[in-house]
Design a protein around this nucleic acid. Structure first.
Lengths: 122, 122
DNA sequence: TTGACACATGCCGATGTCGGAATATTATGG
DNA sequence: CCATAATATTCCGACATCGGCATGTGTCAA
């Protein structure tokens, strides 16, 4: 016994084109992690991480679209290099919360100090 | 002229249940942001962010599943509070890269120092 | 108990995204 | 120019997720 005829549906916000989403995928994080050691060719990444070559290429594409990696052609291979500065949005966003969570620790600290003072009155 | 009959398809890794994905969604970040000020009831969030109530509830569910928020029942409303410590995985992961990017600055620094030394030999 | 709030859940359509396979592209060596 | 190595791109099926709507659940007040 339906109350109306049709259920709703709405276009979605697109995405995958911000740093947060780029980094949300575990495979892409693996790729970034392996690039910390220094720039690597696609084939090297494929070997090191045991991923398929197209998969690696596609992930690299996403990563480069958000600026997290840069590509340098060397002969017939392409060397990808990390561009860590572009993690900045993430870093900045996180910073707000580290503040909030340090405040907690501080309050905990104050509380402990109060306890101490009560332990040794005068 | 196809070479084979069927194209491949494969089950996906599931997900949405790690902090990275939880935080990847802009709306969820908005919710977290608004909770920095302190704990809030669902309805308050709905008002402050002009989102639909079910939407907020669903996002809060995801957030609480990864431990980023905690719920405390107060009468017939539910107060959600931030749990910033659970951002730790993100923070730790990021730390590796800040290292990498500081190294860059350091190398730049070393380079500048070398230039200076060459400028004043012996 | 009843009714109304406050919130959670279930269902649905649209769309995004991932991985696999095949194919296109580009550069290199002979 | 040709064959081949190294990458990129396209096409596809299977999910997963998001948002809207409708409804379920629990709590308070009279």
């Amino acid at each position: 016994m339906p109350m109306s005829e049709y259920y709703g549906a709405v276009a979605r916000s697109s995405t995958t084109s911000d740093v947060f989403n780029a980094v949300a995928e575990a495979r892409r994080r693996e790729i970034l992690d392996t690039l910390i050691a220094g720039e690597k060719a696609v084939g090297t990444i494929v070997n090191d991480l045991s991923m398929s070559q197209p998969q690696v290429s596609k992930h690299l594409r996403v990563l480069s679209e958000v600026g997290l990696v840069r590509c340098k052609a060397e002969g017939r291979r392409r060397l990808y290099r990390l561009e860590p500065e572009h993690l900045r949005p993430l870093h900045d966003w996180l910073a707000k919360y580290e503040q909030a969570w340090n405040d907690r620790l501080d309050r905990m600290d104050d509380y402990l100090k109060e306890l101490q003072q009560q332990g040794e009155p005068q």
